[in-house]
Design a protein around this nucleic acid. Structure first.
Length: 1164
RNA sequence: GCGCGUAUAGCUCAGUUGGCUAGAGCGCAGCUCUGAUAAAGCUGAGGUCCUUGGUUCGAAUCCAAGUACGCGCACCA
């Protein structure tokens, strides 16, 4: 460039094809090299604390994009509070123990060719050596956790999540207890849970219990409700109607129905609903009891247990499988059994209440299992006897009709429910309430144990077993009918095996009586009342309380291998005598055997199993139960196991909420309540957020190919499917785009993630911010702007500068308030509005010529004004960097490093969060600018309505503002409005500018006036439109006696001849559309400028290049060009006007308003 | 079945304490502007603010009932 430009400290900025992910990676390196994180921590050390507790991430696989939502929140709030000067802990955690890891390790082992079809195969990985097998398996689980914890660490760092990470091999060689992140498998974590369980035991809350729960025979493990819900499938089973003869009424039978025939071996009771009416149906020489409502019911119409008759249209047909015959009614069963020509006969009706207590003979009373006091097998009987709720009877002797209450309906089965307390949850409850002892037929592989005669050794899930049951029933004349039945039945989510309901021996924490606020349950509720749940709309406290109110006792045991070893030692001779050990030291003290073997190992299986203690009461040895713990114990203890006392309670936690009210949130609250004796909540504020869905709002599933790996989104790019299901490759999205996308979301809902939403976020915010930054830097560099010059006092800057600074202060206030109340979305939406509407589309656009002006051509005032513009934009960009730094730490760092121009902090993350400067706030000015923008918008509307380009200058604009702000705006910003709308003059009007007119809405007119709207239309035409409008607004307008609403009348506003108008919320504008020859010439000249600019661009010239210009055209256009040549020359950087095209120039032929124009230009 | 929540444009969603003509983005149609622009602006079509009733001068907003969907709990013989 010819002019001598002072050196500028600003680097030029690329605004096309920016590779944001690459910039981010460079920033990661910068942070490392300059120790930025350590320096941030050092700056804040010793200042007031802000305590964050990180919920542990399951270290079992690489991260997906769904992990990034919560982790973005965690980091954004951490960074905000760090910039706000608080001291933080920065400890992140890994969830290590549990079945999820076992599942993956099983897959690994299988892939290595190991035989692994059942749980027992794990115990035989080292053939014949169970402890060695378990040790190997547990070690593999530990290894897998380490491997993926490390992967997740690297990925979290890539996301920008600032934590005290374990980085090098040396860090990872440490024991989990010594690492910087916490690991739930650490000894500290496990022993702290021991102390929790011991505390529970002190209060008498730990008990060994039997309950019936869904069980997978292949995995040998019980499934929780959560796990069960994932495995429902529609399947067909053989169902049976079975006769239960009443002891004291010969020839009379209860008729029961079941879809699980194998449970008939364990039948103990029959439940009726006392309020229902039962029919006595005679068939041949026997009588059967069946619920009246069930008898003729169409059993293919599902889901109808309502009292009111349902409208036929609403009745839904039951889901059914092809090829399975539809169900007959019970009546049809009777008819078909009656045989040709014969029929059944209803011989009476009784109330269910009248059947209660009747004894009957069971279907398998000959089995040893049915003839054992207190139930079967022996272990079960032992517990039942000690429970004290059962009398000393055998199952066979206990058979009777019991009260099932409303749980017994007549819409399914016969209205009499076969009850097997050893095979069903509700049955177990009924059994306990009615003294029916439980008979538990199957072992942990799902096979019949001894005591079940012909069924011994058979698997309950095997269809052949049902056939054997039927054979036995037939022999005893107990089988009334069988049929194929289709229903949704739970399956194991891992191996797809049908689940069986099984009475199992598990360990529980007594939570206190259900549906009360008593006991442990009540203590937790009191703590819940002291924490804040966000976002408010989720009603988190109510959800948590609802769960606490309804939950059952906490089953803490799991019959698996990898996990917390429950510190429960049981007397070898007496299964009811147990102790809970609270620490490693206590165990060492109590150990009488096996300590040497255990010593030096983590408290995991199989090592801790070797330790035996002595029962002080009996002198017997006590052995640890083989169970491992519920993994929510691991995660729930972390408030105590990882946070020093002086950091408790945590100020803040945040996690995805679905499921967590009964999982992590619950475990955390429950365990902290116990550990602090109800004194202290684990956290003060909880922010929940929803789920990450794909870009169409569907659940992400690996199997459906719509989930996105974190690494793909951050760095490598990947492929998803588009709306039509075709593969849609996408480029890397980068961390900041992802982070902004998550932060701008409403946490109460789900977020749709994918390349399309990412593009939208990038275009709508990231690029706008970047372009404003690029504009500043590129002109500052070109111009040699020196940021070290003295600041022009704000009061001496242009209105638009002071307006932008004022609105910036408002944004700062919004930002601080939003972060303080954990509402980063409010900040993001406000920042987007500021950058888009105010900075990019108003301030930068309105002020471009101030930045373009040539310093050398300006007078002192002009130079000062230019400096003010640079300083204003510079200040705003610097503050925006700091404001947005918690959300988009990379991009703001890139910008900051250039914008700071060698002064100030080396990193934006070493700065303080901005504080608003009240002196810069000018509410009146903000209001006026807002009004001015409204007037401009209306003016553009008016131009558009008149069909006149903005390039064509017009003579005048009249404005009738609705209020005082508008009036002040027109006074103050007349020049701005005139310029923006390309009019010569802007003036205020006191009188209405637009004339209203009223017409009938043709859509409704015919209906209102019975097909003849013409007279009404004529009457309306004769009325005063203003009065019509007023009456309509008041809701009291009538025409020819017909009342009309605002929908019936179309009110329009128009400006008088030669003007075009528009109005909004009471503000009216009218623009003079009459074009004089002078205005026309000026407009043509502007067209010429635009075409020349295009030609320059096409010729590949730089903005600063000067040209010689030839313009060949007709007389009128030439006259316009002559009249406005100085403007054209200045705008297009033309130093000379040529009379003929230059020989070696760039030439373009265009049409200006229909006139030919030849442009020829040459760089000089 | 019990409890909680949600319902606003074709899609994704904003809408503070009730207030005048209910908004944004994307998509669609048309127009415009443009040497910071992967841009942007304007206009249009598209709304029973789920329905009904109530409170109020006034309801998308508050209250009640209903419907649909989601979630939690219980259950699925």
């Amino acid at each position: 460039m010819a002019d001598a430009v002072p050196h500028s400290p600003f680097a030029r900025v690329e605004t096309q094809n920016v590779d944001f992910p690459a910039l981010e990676r460079a920033i990661l390196q910068f942070w490392d090299e300059k120790d930025i994180f350590e320096r941030r921590k050092a700056r804040n050390a010793g200042r007031p604390r802000w305590s964050f507790l990180d919920g542990p991430i399951t270290a079992n696989n690489p991260m997906g994009v769904h992990h990034a939502w919560g982790r973005t929140y965690k980091d954004a709030y951490n960074r905000y509070f760090a910039m706000a000067g608080r001291d933080l802990r920065y400890q992140q955690g890994f969830d290590c123990q549990g079945l999820w890891v076992e599942v993956e390790v099983e897959k690994e082992l299988k892939a290595e060719g190991k035989k692994l079809d059942a749980k027992r195969d794990i115990e035989n990985l080292v053939p014949g050596d169970e402890p060695a097998s378990i040790d190997y398996f547990v070690q593999r689980c530990k290894d897998r956790v380490d491997k993926y914890a490390r992967v997740q660490t690297d990925q979290s760092i890539r996301l920008g999540y600032w934590m005290n990470w374990d980085r090098g091999d040396a860090d990872w060689a440490e024991r989990p207890d010594e690492r910087k992140s916490y690991f739930t498998m650490s000894e500290g974590n496990n022993y702290t849970i021991w102390s929790f369980l011991k505390k529970c035991h002190h209060k008498g809350l730990i008990y060994r219990g039997y309950d019936v729960m869904p069980w997978c025979g292949r995995c040998g493990v019980g499934l929780s409700e959560m796990e069960m819900k994932e495995g429902y499938k529609l399947v067909g089973h053989k169902a049976a109607f079975v006769k239960l003869p009443l002891r004291d009424r010969p020839g009379e039978n209860l008729l029961v129905w079941t879809t699980t025939p194998w449970t008939l071996t364990s039948n103990v009771g029959a439940a009726v609903n006392p309020d229902l009416t039962y029919l006595k149906v005679r068939l041949k020489d026997e009588v059967y009891y069946v619920a009246k409502g069930a008898f003729k019911l169409n059993r293919m119409e599902g889901g109808g247990d309502e009292d009111e008759p349902t409208p036929a249209a609403k009745k839904k047909t039951r889901d059914w499988l092809d090829g399975v015959p539809h169900l007959p009614s019970i009546e049809q069963h009777f008819k078909s059994k009656a045989g040709k020509g014969a029929s059944y006969e209803v011989v009476g009706e009784v109330k269910g209440a009248d059947l209660l207590g009747l004894a009957y003979r069971g279907p398998f009373d000959g089995l040893p299992a049915q003839n054992h006091e207190y139930g079967f097998p022996e272990e079960v009987a032992k517990v039942t006897r000690q429970g004290g709720q059962w009398p000393a009877v055998t199952a066979a002797a206990a058979h009777k009709v019991i009260d099932g209450g409303k749980d017994v309906t007549e819409t399914e089965g016969t209205g009499i429910v076969h009850t097997a307390p050893g095979c069903g949850q509700i049955d177990y409850g009924w059994g306990r309430a009615n003294g029916l002892p439980p008979v538990a037929p199957i072992d942990d592989a799902g096979t019949f144990v001894d005591g079940f005669g012909p069924l011994e050794g058979m698997n309950a899930a095997d269809p052949a077993t049902a056939e054997v049951v039927f054979e036995e029933l037939k022999k005893a004349d107990r089988l009334f009918a069988t049929e194929r039945y289709v229903h949704r039945y739970p399956h194991c989510w891992r191996c797809k095996t049908e689940l069986l309901y099984r009475l199992v021996d598990e360990w529980f924490i007594n939570m206190g009586p259900r549906n009360t606020e008593e006991g442990f349950r009540g203590d937790i509720m009191k703590v819940v009342d002291r924490v804040t749940f966000l976002p408010e709309s989720l009603n988190g406290r109510a959800r948590e309380r609802d769960w606490l109110w309804n939950m059952g006792d906490w089953m803490v045991s799991k019959k698996r291998f990898w996990g917390l070893t429950l510190p429960i030692w049981v007397d070898d001779q007496d299964p009811t005598d147990f102790e809970v050990i609270g620490s490693r030291e206590e165990l060492k003290e109590r150990a009488v055997e096996g300590w040497e073997e255990f010593d030096g190992h983590t408290p995991h299986r199989p090592w801790v199993d070797k330790v035996k203690i002595k029962n002080p009461r009996t002198g017997n040895l006590m052995s640890r139960i083989p169970d491992v713990g519920n993994p929510w114990l691991d995660a729930g203890i972390v408030a105590y196991s990882t946070m020093p006392a002086d950091w408790r309670p945590a100020d803040f936690i945040t996690e995805s909420f679905p499921g967590q009210f009964r999982n992590w949130f619950y475990a955390l609250l429950a365990m902290s309540t116990m550990m602090s004796d109800g004194q202290e909540p684990p956290f003060k504020t909880l922010l929940g957020h929803g789920l990450v869905k794909d870009q169409f709002g569907k659940d992400m599933h690996k199997s459906e190919g719509n989930s996105i790996e974190f690494v793909a989104a951050a760095d490598t790019g990947g492929t998803v499917r588009d709306a039509k299901g075709n593969p849609q490759p996408f480029a890397a999205i980068g961390a900041d785009v992802m982070r902004w996308l998550y932060c701008r979301q409403n946490p109460a809902g789900n977020v749709n993630f994918g390349p399309d939403p990412a593009d939208e976020v990038r275009a709508r915010f990231i690029l706008k911010l970047w372009n404003c930054y690029g504009f500043f830097c590129n002109y500052a560099a070109l111009d040699g702007f020196d940021p070290g010059l003295p600041q022009v006092p704000a009061c001496e800057r242009a209105d638009i500068d002071r307006w932008l600074l004022s609105d910036l202060q408002l944004l700062i206030k919004t930002a601080r308030a939003a972060f303080e109340r954990y509402d980063v979305m409010a900040f993001c939406l406000a920042a987007e509005e500021f950058v888009d509407a105010k900075l990019s589309n108003w301030y930068v656009r309105r002020n471009r010529d101030r930045f373009w002006s040539k310093t050398a051509e300006l007078d002192e005032a002009g130079r000062r004004d230019k400096r003010a513009a640079y300083q204003t934009l510079h200040t705003v960009l610097l503050d925006l960097c700091r404001l947005c730094a918690p959300v988009i730490p990379f991009l703001t760092e890139v910008m900051w490093r250039n914008l700071r121009a060698g002064a100030g902090a080396e990193s934006v993350h070493l700065t303080d969060y901005p504080a608003a400067d009240e002196e810069l706030v000018d509410a009146g000015l903000s209001e006026e600018m807002e009004a001015a923008r409204g007037v401009v918008s209306l003016g553009l509307t008016a131009r558009n309505a008149a069909g006149v380009n903005v390039r064509r200058p017009l003579a005048g604009l009249r404005v009738r503002p609705a209020g005082d702000a508008g009036r002040r705006a027109v006074d103050r910003f007349a020049a701005l409005i005139a310029d923006e709308l390309n009019v010569k003059q802007v003036s205020l009007a006191e009188e209405p500018l637009l004339r209203r007119s009223a017409a009938l809405n043709p859509k409704t007119a015919k209906a209102r006036f019975k097909g003849k709207p013409e007279p009404a239309a004529a009457a309306l035409a004769g009325m005063d439109p203003e009065a019509v409008a007023a009456d309509l607004a008041a809701g009291m307008f009538a025409l020819l006696g017909v009342p009309l609403t605002a929908d019936d009348v179309i009110l329009t506003e128009a400006a008088p001849g030669g003007w075009a108008g528009a109005s909004d919320k009471g503000t009216q504008v009218a623009i003079d559309t009459r074009i004089t020859p002078e205005l026309r010439a000026e407009g043509l000249a502007r067209d010429v400028v635009r075409f020349v600019q295009n030609a320059r661009k096409d010729a590949g010239l730089d903005v600063a290049d000067r040209i010689e210009l030839f313009l060949g055209t007709d007389a009128e256009l030439r006259a316009a060009i002559d009249a406005h040549w100085p403007t054209i020359a200045a705008e297009t950087q033309a130093v000379r006007r040529l009379d003929a095209p230059p020989a070696d120039g760039f030439t373009a032929a265009v049409a200006v308003d229909g006139r030919p124009l030849t442009i020829a230009l040459r760089k000089v």
